[in-house]
């Protein structure tokens, strides 16, 4: 029973990382209409920058998280302005942006390899909250609890931002129809910049935390998060952060339990079959609104 609970918590923490990354990915997809292949590299770069802040500059972990998050956001801004803005102004649609994002994926992945000298690095165990806490008979990692809490805070925060604030209304308006939003007095360019930054920062946060939690800071980090974060977005519905969060957590828990009680070889098969079932049977995800139609 204790093993069961410990594993459930392990899965929850793991899934929270998928969800946190997925929120950023979904935000770009729903608001900016871009299937961004380069999104995983934001997480890799955030983790790499965070690592060097700890390792070279000797600053504490919270600073590394902050710098990493900022790096993820700024990188997303730069990519948006270089790769997506020129196409946006020419109305080239989703296709062109997909290709430029692939170009940036190739570039940033390759540069990340150089930045870590092709190695997989790890935050020194002493530099971040890596200890264990005893909750009754259960052992729980401090960082796991932090990750779980961070996801809850980010989900609520971003959900409120989108649903309750003027900025969120503007974001939804731009996601619906950029031209109409501009006619309605929304500063579309500002909204796009803010969305790109927010998405990069959220996924960057997932990157730094995942880099510390899994002892893996390298260009492979983002790719792993991308594959699972993507699944969370599809199952949860890309236009609702709550759906992404819940779907991500569920995927993490299912993954851990399938590996523990069924078979590791079938683990990913399980995840992606679930994905397929959702796609065919409930194509708008957990919270997807049936009336929300995008052109």
């Amino acid at each position: 029973m204790i093993l069961f609970l410990e594993q459930a918590l392990n899965g929850w923490a793991l899934g929270s990382l998928y969800a946190l990354f997925g929120i950023g990915f979904g935000l770009v997809f729903s608001t900016l209409g871009i299937l961004n292949a380069a999104h995983g590299t934001y997480a890799s770069w955030a983790a790499i920058v965070g690592y060097y802040v700890v390792e070279r500059a000797g600053l504490p972990f919270p600073v590394a998280v902050g710098v990493g998050v900022a790096a993820g956001g700024l990188l997303a801004l730069a990519v948006d302005q270089i790769a997506f803005q020129p196409l946006r102004s020419r109305k080239a649609g989703m296709l062109g942006a997909l290709i430029t994002s692939i170009a940036f994926w190739i570039i940033l992945d390759s540069l990340a390899g150089f930045a870590t000298e092709q190695q997989s690095l790890a935050f020194p165990a002493a530099s971040f909250p890596s200890g264990m806490i005893d909750i009754g008979p259960m052992k729980v990692g401090q960082l796991q609890l932090i990750i779980i809490a961070v996801l809850i805070v980010c989900t609520i925060g971003i959900h409120l931002l989108i649903q309750k604030t003027r900025l969120g209304t503007a974001m939804r308006a731009v996601g619906w129809n950029e031209v109409a939003a501009a006619l309605g007095g929304v500063n579309a360019r500002m909204v796009i910049l803010l969305t790109a930054f927010l998405a990069g920062a959220t996924s960057g946060l997932a990157g730094v935390l995942a880099g510390a939690a899994t002892s893996n800071v390298s260009f492979t980090l983002g790719e792993g998060l991308m594959l699972k974060g993507f699944a969370a977005v599809v199952v949860g519905g890309y236009d609702d952060v709550r759906g992404t969060a819940i779907a991500g957590i569920l995927l993490g828990i299912i993954e851990v339990f399938v590996a523990q009680y069924v078979s590791t070889a079938l683990r990913d098969g399980f995840t992606y079959s679930l994905l397929l079932i959702f796609l065919v049977a409930r194509p708008r995800g957990l919270f997807g609104s049936a009336g929300f139609v995008r052109a």
């Binding site: 392990n10 899994t214 683990r267 990913d268």
Partner: peptide
Amino acid sequence: LSADTDFTAPATQ
């Protein structure tokens, strides 16, 4: 699996 990066759950197991 080779591509795995999170080993908290396998270690617990």
